[in-house]
Design a protein around this nucleic acid. Sequence first.
DNA 1: GTAATTGCAAATAATTTGCCGTGCA
DNA 2: TGCACGGCAAATTATTTGCAATTAC
Lengths: 159, 159
Amino acid sequence: MRIERLCVERGLKMTGQRRLIARVLSEAVDHPDVEELYRRALALDSRVSIATVYRTVRLLEEKGILERHDFGGGRARYEATDHGHHYHLIDIESGKVIEFSDEQHEALATAIAARLGFRLVGHRLELFGRRQDEEPAPPLRGRVRRAPAKGDAGGGGAA
Amino acid sequence: MRIERLCVERGLKMTGQRRLIARVLSEAVDHPDVEELYRRALALDSRVSIATVYRTVRLLEEKGILERHDFGGGRARYEATDHGHHYHLIDIESGKVIEFSDEQHEALATAIAARLGFRLVGHRLELFGRRQDEEPAPPLRGRVRRAPAKGDAGGGGAA
DNA sequence: GTAATTGCAAATAATTTGCCGTGCA
DNA sequence: TGCACGGCAAATTATTTGCAATTAC
């Protein structure tokens, strides 16, 4: 319910659907897109429309409660801003998103901006990588390795 | 004409419109969106349709000749990949995009990915900043500073 | 009580695509 | 000369919005 609290703090009028969407957001541990948020909300209470989900994420983004990401794939994906500054590494085989943070990078970004004559207001860093085979690998044969794609939010269900 | 050469190298059939679009891309020093590419192409030769521009940038992106960016504002913006790896700093007042590169960051990104068990395949870093007033600033009064927005590509014409 | 919010369906906006004529290799 | 390509307009996809009914404060 962290999100609902934040909404109240910013003086938003709390309707049933806003509370519902806030709850879905509070419970999310991934980076759902609007469709997915809508699906999860519907599962809890059918009295929401997707238009309201769109309106709400937009509002919460403006209020700084949500952050919008573009991880490719055409739809915007959302995440609460309240669990700290971090970056993303996208596994290009599975689409999974891994979060990390790095103070060194933080400092470097600020330094670079300053060097260019700017005060850093925001930044984003996204790494795209392929899982490193940790097994020393059987000398002959080997390889083959396919992941069925589909990211950490989009598809089926499972919260 | 660098782009056209790259197209030929990758075995693309070179039609009149592809040559035209390749030329526009070769001459661009900014990050135009499709509308803008179409406008520039039209100015040189009216026998192109915007559908072809869409098809071509998509093709060139798949071939690794172009890179697509999302700088906010809803439309994808393109840039040739052949002028070296670099990052972008977006001036949030004017929308202007400044390119820079930084070896330290390059290394850091690789190290972070490795630490997480991944081999880095690609990455992007975008800084959003506000121009730092370089003048020591007249002690009294001061401030005011507004830029009319509109980025480094979208708008009017000018190549 | 009143202005903000919602749902619905229609409107946008960016991008893609089917189909058929045309031009490149 | 065949097969990929280009033009056009219609189709998609993601997102926004007008309007009347509803609701929070």
